[in-house]
Design a protein around this nucleic acid. Structure first.
Lengths: 152, 152
DNA sequence: TTTGAAAGCGTGAATTC
DNA sequence: GAATTCACGCTTTCAAA
């Protein structure tokens, strides 16, 4: 697997872009003491190496009609069946994240929904798509989410 | 509280920026059938209204030396104490997300760490900072994370 | 890694609908 | 109120060194 030691300058660039994904190459240059084209090349290389996987805007879901967030922990009903939950659930748009985990359950999903009724419907779709039982934990308050964690 | 019905064009802009946070105003204009300055104004308004909370790069944590991810569910040891866990934990840099939840535990944290030993140390810091007991669920595989969920 | 040049983009003001 | 056009300056991008 990967991991080829990230240079201090590249680390700095990653950190800056994690905090402000729209920062210009000019400003990245000023912040790192490099020329615009030098950072430009480094960023392109970081993208190619897969260290930068993409860029996104952080959306206020509560204000665009998706006020309900929840964690859904799932376990297979028939443990002898092939364990392909991730693939079976991929098409469901309300699923924001999908992790397999070590613990009482096999997977944890994070989902967004409009209303309790819509969440109930979503649960039914998840159960039937993946043949699993579910345990749902409703999010009450999001204090923060996806803070940049870059180490050091 | 907020929620003032998001216009179809604004919805489209939010969706496009959620998928590519570095998309240019020119391209946003082409994709929405508006002039560059029209989208520019709309994006500025979406930022002011707080519907766009920021922009970030998605980093491959495994490859920058943070291969361990985990969920930490916590419950207060002394339920009579004020419930200010989020504030007490905010300074810990390994905590990527912090939610209060309805369920057996009061909070769920998502953390990133380097090694099992570093995770053990992190758990100790969390317990002593917030006076809580913890239950840790290690992430084995991240199938996907923070997919754009914009509804409709 | 830098420089330099061309193309493209962001930004604001004036204008129109 | 919101969209467009135009113009200026800055940013991106690529070649060459």
């Amino acid at each position: 697997m990967s991991q080829s030691a990230v240079e201090p300058t590249d680390r700095k660039i990653l950190q800056l872009l994690a905090e402000d994904g729209r920062m210009s190459f000019t400003d990245l240059g000023k912040a790192t003491g490099l020329s615009t084209s030098a950072v430009h090349q480094r960023v392109k290389r970081l993208e190619q190496r897969g260290l930068i996987q993409g860029y996104g805007a952080t959306i206020n879901h509560a204000d665009i009609g998706l006020p309900l967030a929840a964690f859904i922990s799932i376990r297979p009903i028939d443990p002898s069946q092939p364990d392909d939950c991730a693939a079976r659930l991929e098409h469901i748009p309300e699923i924001e994240s999908c992790w397999s985990v070590a613990g009482e359950e096999s997977y944890v999903l994070k989902v967004r929904s409009t209303t309790p009724a819509a969440l109930e419907d979503l649960l039914a779709r998840i159960r039937s798509a993946a043949n699993v039982s579910t345990r749902t934990t409703i999010v009450l308050t999001t204090y923060y989410e996806n803070r940049p964690v870059t180490g050091e």
